[in-house]
């Protein structure tokens, strides 16, 4: 899922300061999973902002709403009935959500309240880690299901750097060396030969390059 964290409250206050009527818009999807922008967080943020405004003696209207998904326009248009009541939308969606909302309501400022972080997995209670960089050319087969692009600090494709020690990464001893994990896994199912070959330079064009990436499935289109 996409992970995100809330921006500092001061930054949010600053960015919404020109507006009198603000809709705090949550997203019940990925950002709800990572406890950054779900219904609950949206309620908390809206309440916090209302209090902050009252403290500053500002007359503002701040209300909250949570969409099932901000990045799917069918959900976004459901706001059409109420959107006229607001001068701006403070979105707790990921970057994609913010932009999808902005596209539907071109006349309205859409302000992000979150910093979109990475594609991650929930490792433990309140603990999320990056596990995929969305490279567009998955190589997890070769690496025993552990992606060195996401999980090796140096994105090495041909084995660990010299800094791998006791299974830890040289950059942060908290982080396990991805290569150590890869090797352990492949050894477990006797597939170390997958690493014998030299992996050629990665084709990064699938990740970035020609503007925003697109996926088109003709069979799915109307």
């Amino acid at each position: 899922m996409i992970t995100a964290t809330q921006k500092p409250i001061d930054e949010i206050k600053e960015t919404i300061s020109p507006y009198k009527r603000v809709l705090v818009l949550g997203c019940a999807s990925c950002v709800a999973e990572c406890a950054a922008g779900g219904e609950k967080e949206t309620g908390i943020l809206a309440s916090t902002l209302r209090m902050a405004a009252k403290m500053e003696g500002k007359e503002v209207t701040i209300r909250e709403k949570t969409l099932d998904r901000q990045c799917v326009k069918d959900f976004v248009v459901q706001m059409d009935d109420i959107i006229d009541e607001y001068d701006a939308v403070l979105s707790l969606g990921c970057g994609a959500g913010v932009q999808a909302v902005a596209e539907i309501f071109p006349e309205l400022p859409i302000i992000p309240a979150l910093n979109t972080e990475f594609l991650g997995e929930t490792r433990d209670q309140g603990f999320w880690v990056e596990s995929c960089v969305g490279c567009g050319d998955c190589m997890l087969y070769y690496f025993g299901g552990i992606c060195p692009l996401a999980r090796c600090s140096k994105q090495l494709l041909n084995g660990p750097c010299g800094g791998s020690k006791d299974g830890r990464c040289e950059v942060d001893p908290e982080v396990p060396c991805a290569w150590q994990l890869i090797i352990e896994r492949l050894e477990r199912f006797n597939a170390m030969d997958r690493l014998e070959k030299i992996f050629p330079p990665k084709d990064w064009s699938k990740k970035q390059g020609q503007g925003p990436r697109k996926i088109i499935r003709e069979d799915q289109q109307r």
Binding site: E39, K40, G43, A46, M51, K54, M55, G57, R63, E64
Partner: peptide, 21 residues
């Protein structure tokens, strides 16, 4: 509390914001 301005006390029926949790 600077949040409770103007001070309304507990029994103000105008305060209704039954939004979602």
């Amino acid at each position: 509390s600077p949040v409770l301005r103007p001070r309304t006390g507990f029994e103000d029926p105008e305060r209704k914001q039954g939004d979602k949790l």
